[in-house]
């Protein structure tokens, strides 16, 4: 807020609030789907997982899950940073690192999924 000399947009809050709830709603079925997929496909060979991940019926929900999950994570961590970090510089730096982490790790996950689909 302005009086704290911290540059948090007053308009961004509503967007984050709504996006956090939309991604939460999307993640309910997607996480249940992922848990079922994981217990039925991991623990064995890579070939089993690879074939499952390359299937279009897996790629679409998994892609949606990754997008929703990394967006949800970024907003959630931002809320933690805003609640506990009161030094403006540190807050800006951690906020940047949070976005950087989500884009980078999310990007690697998404890219891995697509590379399996397109090389399978």
């Amino acid at each position: 807020m302005a009086q704290d000399n911290v540059s948090i947009s007053a308009h961004k809050g509503t967007g984050s609030f709504i996006l956090q709830r939309i991604t939460a709603l999307l993640l309910i079925p997607l996480i249940i789907w992922l848990l079922y997929g994981l217990v039925t496909h991991i623990g064995g060979d890579r070939a089993v997982v690879y074939a499952w991940l390359a299937d279009m019926r897996t790629v679409l929900p998994m892609g949606a899950l990754l997008l929703a999950m990394f967006a949800h994570m970024r907003i959630g961590m931002q809320e933690i940073i805003d609640d506990y970090i009161h030094t403006p510089d540190l807050r800006s730096m951690l906020s940047f690192l949070n976005s950087f982490f989500c884009v980078l790790v999310g990007g690697i996950a998404f890219w891995s999924l697509l590379s399996i689909t397109f090389t399978a």
Binding site: L53, M73, A109
Partner: peptide
Amino acid sequence: TGAALYMGSLLITAWLAAAAYGE
């Protein structure tokens, strides 16, 4: 748990990347 799962996303990503990378 939200913070723990934030770190847990590294596990999911490692799993996908390893599956993509090789045997």
